[in-house]
Computed example of a mutant assay.
Amino acid sequence: MSTAEHLAAIDLLRSREFPAEHGRSPYGVGGPGYHIAELLTSGDFWEDDGTEWETTSDQYDAERDGLTVLLAERWGEPQKFSLASVFERAQGDDFADEREDGDEHGGEDIPEPWSSLSSSVPDLHLWRVEGRWIALGVSQWDTELPFQLLAVVTEIDPP
């Protein structure tokens, strides 16, 4: 997808109704109150010595930053929003161990899309436009897995 296509996808998602149920869409995933568009996805890094990973990481950050400049021309400078504390709140006191009461999720209930985003996106560039939040971020679930440039449109306030 080109930069113009990325902007068109963001504009399309801003104008669309949110889906009633969680699920896939032609652009990515969505659910009640949000759309997440997968604008760009890299290859994986199973056979990489670290060189390709570093280059791709820099490329995806540059793609996000380039889109940020164009969107800042429309809506002003974005907020830089770290999801680290959201992830910690969602995990609670026990990142890996099951709790004694059998509850595997000891953390706070974080609403979507923020819960899912906090698992793979360290920070977002975030705007509030016409009653909706628009965000850009770079996702990677694990060092061997692909990077994704994500655009988020949601009516759900950040936690």
Rank of each mutant, 00 (worst) to 15 (best):
A90V: 02
D94T: 14
S119Q: 15
R74E: 12
T56V: 03
F81G: 03
W114L: 04
V129R: 00
R64T: 11
L126T: 03
V121E: 01
G106C: 03
T68V: 09
Q59D: 13
S118K: 06
D58F: 15
D97W: 01
R89S: 02
S116L: 13
D94E: 14
E130D: 11
E63C: 08
G107S: 00
L70F: 00
P122V: 09
P122N: 07
H125M: 14
G131E: 04
D94I: 10
F87C: 14
A96P: 00
F87R: 15
E104T: 04
D101Y: 09
A62H: 07
L117F: 04
A90L: 03
G76E: 10
D65Y: 09
G76K: 08
Q59H: 08
R128W: 12
P122K: 04
T56I: 02
W114P: 05
G102H: 07
P113Y: 00
E77G: 10
E54R: 06
I134G: 01
S118A: 09
R64W: 09
E54N: 07
P113V: 02
V129Y: 06
R128Q: 11
V121P: 01
A84D: 04
A72G: 08
E112N: 06
V86S: 03
Y60T: 10
A72P: 04
W53T: 11
F81V: 02
E104Q: 06
G76V: 01
W133D: 02
E112S: 06
L70P: 00
H125P: 09
